[in-house]
Design a protein around this nucleic acid. Sequence first.
DNA 1: TCTGGGGTCCTAGGACCC
DNA 2: TCTGGGGTCCTAGGACCC
Length: 426
Amino acid sequence: MSSTLPNKTLALVDCDSFYCSCERLFCLKARKKPVVVLSNNDGCVVSRSREAKELGIVMGVPYFKIKDLCQEKGVMVFSSNYPLYADLSSRVMRTLYHFAPEVEVYSIDEAFMDLSSLPFASAEDFAIEVRQTLYKEVGIPISMGIAATKVLTKVATKLAKKNKRGVFVIDEHTDKEKLLTHFPVEDLWGIGHQSALKLKILGIRNAWQLLNANEALIQKTLTVVGKRIQQELKGVNCIELDLEKEHKQQIISSKSFERSIWVRNDLQEALANHALRASAKLRQEEQVCFGLQVFIHTNRFKESPQYYNSATEYFLSGTNSPQDIIQKSMQALERIYKDGFEYKKCGIMLFDVRPHCQLQLSLFDQDHSERAKKEKIAQTLDQINQKFGPHSISFFACGTKTPWDKNGSKKSPSFTTNWKELPKVY
DNA sequence: TCTGGGGTCCTAGGACCC
DNA sequence: TCTGGGGTCCTAGGACCC
């Protein structure tokens, strides 16, 4: 935490309805219609075009609840196509680096930029240029907020989404009192449902009231997290730009099942697939892990008996071997599995993740030839799957049928990342 | 019938040590 | 038998984000 650098100028670039915008890029028909994109299992709405928002479709609503509305209003519905979004995201981010050297890629559709040292005359003109360039070169519309701190750029970006230019600047000429008095405290970045409730008890309902509240009281109520938000509202930088994202600290693979699982063997196979997938992510990042956690649970939306449990296993030395990770995950599952429940979801989390080069062998480590053999197997597995497509080769534990698995049925082709699915031009 | 998945950061409290 | 206080490290769980 630091407040040593006053007068910073930061920007937040936020892609508008990102997943929907990606779909529209390759589907002309979708440009003229309301669009929604669904979550992994076609479960919930995770992205909505402006027209879809206007129809009253809210973020996170289960698809089955709005299916009729979509048909009635001609809403185009897509399953999520993550490779497409990831590719377009990296194009957006690459373009941003042309405008400023200091860019923090915050999420798939957002980036912070440090504009402090840039020689532009008008922040607003700069933002408009970035916006036009992105639209021309990548085809993705964005909104941009410019202010002194991250929290204020988040506020500015929300306001930018509401005006026509898609740009909003908060600077020394801004009437902050007027602006923040109309900004509900629960809309602030970092203030979720629980924190908003606590603040309401204190009579704090808008951002201006939070800015002016007693600092000690805010820290006591919302810990240092709340204190930082308060300082940032005042224009004091407390949340630094993270320019070089450290390596990942954990890797998760989990998914709900299409149909409930009653049988132990099905759960084992589903989990083994997650273990395999997580280990592949680990190798892709050139990392190893020292532990894993397995979790299973029933459907919380049903009235049937509920069960949730998790179990942790550790490795004596770091590993990214699919065999090691599958084996330990099966051991963990054995410790928590109970018969007679209707399971809906399982998953695995790899933790204590470190770069492969930092690998230190344990005194009790399996001998080197064993380790080398496992590395060879993993390498071969990755090569084959890269060449012939995912799941070309797997482990016996992962099974061959995957009746519990569900794939989006409304998925668009991987236009930009798979040669076989390039868009056709007539 | 159908309700996402993948992350980070912070804190309280227990274990352990001196 | 009486029975301290301070420090560190680790972990589970909460809260939040996109």
